[in-house]
Amino acid sequence: MTADELRAAIAADCPHRLDDYDRHLAAAPAGWQPTRAFRVLWWTEHHISSSDLEARIGGLYQQAQDSTNREEALGLIEQAGELRNAVQRRVIKEMGDA
Rank of each mutant, 00 (worst) to 15 (best):
N85H: 13
W32D: 15
I77P: 01
R17N: 07
Q62C: 04
L76G: 01
Q63Y: 04
Q33T: 10
H16Q: 14
Y61D: 11
D66E: 13
G59L: 09
Q79S: 12
T2W: 04
T44R: 02
R23N: 14
A12P: 05
H24Y: 13
G81F: 06
R90E: 13
F38I: 08
E54R: 10
R89A: 14
W43V: 08
Y21P: 05
F38P: 02
R56S: 01
I57D: 03
L18A: 01
L83A: 04
L60T: 04
S49C: 12
I57C: 07
T68M: 07
A64P: 07
S51C: 00
V91G: 05
H47E: 13
A98C: 12
L25W: 03
F38M: 11
L18C: 06
E5N: 10
D19S: 12
D19G: 07
I10A: 08
L74I: 09
A28V: 14
A12I: 04
W43D: 15
A27R: 07
R39H: 00
L53W: 00
N69C: 11
V91W: 01
G59M: 04
R89L: 14
G31W: 02
T44L: 10
E54W: 05
R7I: 02
M1K: 10
G58F: 03
A73V: 06
L60D: 03
I92W: 03
V87I: 09
E45S: 10
A98G: 12
A55F: 10
W43R: 11
E78I: 13
D19E: 15
G96P: 02
L25D: 08
M95E: 11
Q33K: 08
Q79L: 08
A37N: 08
V40Y: 07
M95R: 06
R17E: 09
R90M: 11
S49W: 06
R7P: 01
N85P: 08
T35E: 12
A30G: 13
Q62D: 11
E71I: 12
A55C: 00
Q33C: 04
N85A: 15
R90F: 02
L76A: 00
E71A: 15
E5T: 06
D52Q: 09
M1V: 09
L6K: 06
Q88I: 07
G81Y: 06
D52P: 06
N69R: 08
Q79N: 06
Q62R: 02
Y61T: 03
L60W: 07
H24M: 12
L83Q: 07
H24G: 12
W32A: 15
E45I: 08
E94C: 09
W32M: 15
S49I: 00
R17C: 06
L6T: 05
A27H: 09
R39Y: 04
S51Q: 08
R39A: 07
V91M: 00
D4M: 09
Y61H: 11
E45F: 09
D19V: 13
A86I: 03
Q88S: 14
T44C: 09
Q65D: 00
P29R: 15
L53F: 01
G96K: 02
D19I: 09
F38G: 02
L41V: 03
R36N: 05
T68W: 02
A86G: 07
V40T: 05
V91K: 03
I77Q: 11
